[in-house]
Amino acid sequence: MRAIYAARQDAAAPLTGLEVGDLPEPAPPTGWVPVQVRAAALNHHDLWSLRGVGLRGEQLPMILGTDAVGTDPDGRQVLVHAVISSTDWVGEETLDPRRTLLSEKHPGTLAERVWVPARNLIPVPHSLSAAEAACLPTAYLTAFRMVVHEAQVRPGQRVLVQGAGGGVATAAVQLALAAGAQVVVTSRTEAKLERARILGAHEAVPTGTRVNPVDAVIETVGAATWEHSLRSLRPGGVVVVAGATSGPDPSADLNRVFFRSLRILGSTMGTAAQLAELAAMVETTGVRPVIDSEHDLGSEAGVRAAFERLDSGAAFGKVVLTT
């Protein structure tokens, strides 16, 4: 089976371990079903795997990828939900301490076929192309859970999204706008700020700029923006954290947190039920995932160009591979 996989790991030069070629078809667990992949979006999780974070060397080679859209054995077009909970787990899958993502324990989505539990398949929104739909299961689901379930954004509230251009940040801007919020976006580059304005952000300002108080902050950057996130909140506001791409911040500014009754909530991915909710939201609101670039899933040159684009940090929106 043709696949895109991590053959080696290098923290400094992750793309040196990327390979495109044939691997034996995996033996799936009982109850799992195959999905013929039509499109798959890349995520920073793929780069972390190539760097050796979250994936042990003895697990190599490992097929990469957590996002996919494809066709199930009954011919249905489906989204693949990448969170795999334990077989005996009851309840929300993201709270299972033994949960994994596809490409961590089980082969990922960047292949001709991916095997997943039948419960992890969600119908594709009819209004989306395969490339657009492939953006939903990781970045857009993460943003949906942050904006709708954790921050519980309501019409008229002010929402600050740190780090314009990233997949989760871009999704958060769109979903907060769809929820009726006033959206403030930050970035270190004017080009990404301009793209955020075009996307509909009410304010787009350089990172660290003082802004009028906000009700909620969507935080995936970490150390570089953490102090600004806390200082930007109104009393009683909430910062929802789903990543720290610039590294963790050792200072929580606890005086500010307790004196202003701030809330800090952690959020990871989302459930299959939330992915179904997201699919319904994009169908009814007209939200369309932002695609930075599309590349050929069947071409080694296309695959490498896609990973290089992701690794460059220059992408605005999602990098997608399509058949």
Rank of each mutant, 00 (worst) to 15 (best):
G270D: 10
V239M: 05
G302M: 06
R256H: 12
E283M: 12
V240Y: 01
V290Y: 02
R288Y: 11
A273G: 14
A315E: 10
S293F: 05
A244K: 00
V287D: 00
V303I: 12
A279V: 03
G313Q: 01
A279E: 04
I264Y: 00
T268R: 00
D292H: 11
G270A: 11
E294W: 03
A306F: 02
G247Q: 06
G236M: 03
T285A: 10
I264C: 04
N255C: 12
R304P: 05
R304E: 08
S299C: 14
S261C: 14
F259Q: 15
L254A: 12
H295C: 02
D292E: 13
A301T: 12
S293V: 00
V290I: 15
L275V: 07
V238T: 15
L265A: 08
R256S: 15
D253Q: 15
S251H: 14
S246T: 15
E277L: 04
G266T: 08
S312M: 03
G266L: 04
P250Y: 09
G237R: 00
S299R: 13
R288F: 05
G243T: 01
A306C: 05
A273F: 09
G302Q: 02
D311R: 07
P248C: 04
E283C: 09
A276M: 03
E277I: 06
I264M: 10
A276C: 10
A301G: 10
A272E: 07
E294T: 13
G247T: 06
A315V: 08
R304T: 05
A280H: 07
A301D: 15
D296E: 12
E308S: 13
A301I: 04
V303C: 06
M281I: 07
M281Q: 09
